[in-house]
Amino acid sequence: MTVASTYTDLAASGTAIATANTDNANSAAQPIGFTFSYNGQNFTQFVLNTNGFVKLGATAPSAANMFLPEDVNAPEIDPIASPNPADVNILAPFNFDLTAGSATGGAEYRVATTGTSPNRVCTIQWKNVADKTLEYDLQYSSMNFQLKLYETTNVVEFVYGPTTKGPNPDDFRFAVVGLKGTADGETVLSNKTSSAAWSATTFITGNYTTSAHNYRGTVPPDAGRTYRFVPAPPAAAPRP
């Protein structure tokens, strides 16, 4: 579901996540701070990718340059569609070919776990990143977003913060936004036309077909816009 909320920058709280670069890189495994249940498995760590997603667990995805390519013949790998057994349990708040944004200070990745057991929240933040100019024009010269993991409820949230329009005219671009389990097609993905507000996002299962999470410079996320994913309740036991 999509809801209006607030965005709070982590600032200097928590821990900065080191990566080899701000273009295509995976971090070392980072602690969540509690046990998080996802897709029938328990996780205490995650690996951050600079291209706007994490893989739950201690092992990295199959590559660092992972995003849905704009050219069908490009060598990059879409982490959602990838059949590689390493590319599972993916949480993607904004998976695109991202690089450092234009704001002072450069790009930063950070994690902070707050609250007290059994209601802690792990917040993973991408700060001052930008969609790279490839075949289409850069649309966001600086954007900020977070992934939140909730203890006990196992809710996942994508929260979007301040976004600065790029210097180029509006152009058609598409990001991968959503969740993947352990198989191709085992997904919940956001679906948005380029002209629609982020509040109008809908959600699909399976893979993208005719559209993805399409965006443009004049239609940024409203600050605090949140995509919330709530686990399905366990099936009731059969009555005797």
Rank of each mutant, 00 (worst) to 15 (best):
G106T: 07
Y150G: 06
A100T: 14
N24D: 15
A235G: 09
L149A: 04
A12M: 12
A16S: 14
E108A: 14
L98P: 00
D170L: 05
L134R: 04
Y160A: 01
V88G: 01
A236E: 13
L147A: 01
T218E: 08
A92M: 10
A86S: 14
A183H: 06
S199F: 00
N26K: 05
T193I: 03
A18V: 12
T59S: 13
A74M: 05
F229V: 01
S141R: 11
F46S: 00
L149Q: 02
S141K: 13
N26C: 07
S199Q: 14
V176E: 10
V219C: 02
A74V: 01
Y227G: 00
F158E: 01
I32F: 05
T187W: 05
A100L: 04
R120Y: 11
G33R: 03
P240H: 13
S102V: 15
A28Y: 04
N42V: 03
N168E: 14
G178W: 10
F67E: 03
W126V: 02
N51E: 11
P118W: 13
A200V: 01
G52K: 02
G106Y: 10
P231E: 04
A63Q: 10
E70S: 11
F36G: 07
P118Y: 12
S62I: 09
A58P: 11
L98Y: 00
R216Q: 15
T59E: 08
F158N: 01
G105Y: 10
S117N: 15
A175V: 01
P162Y: 01
K180Y: 06
A60H: 07
T187P: 00
T22Q: 13
F36I: 05
V156H: 02
K192T: 08
A223W: 02
P93F: 01
G178D: 11
V159F: 06
Y215M: 07
Q139M: 12
A100K: 04
T164V: 15
N119K: 11
V155L: 04
A29F: 06
G106D: 09
I32Q: 12
T116K: 08
P234Y: 05
F43N: 11
N214F: 06
T6M: 05
R110M: 06
Q146V: 01
P240E: 14
S62M: 08
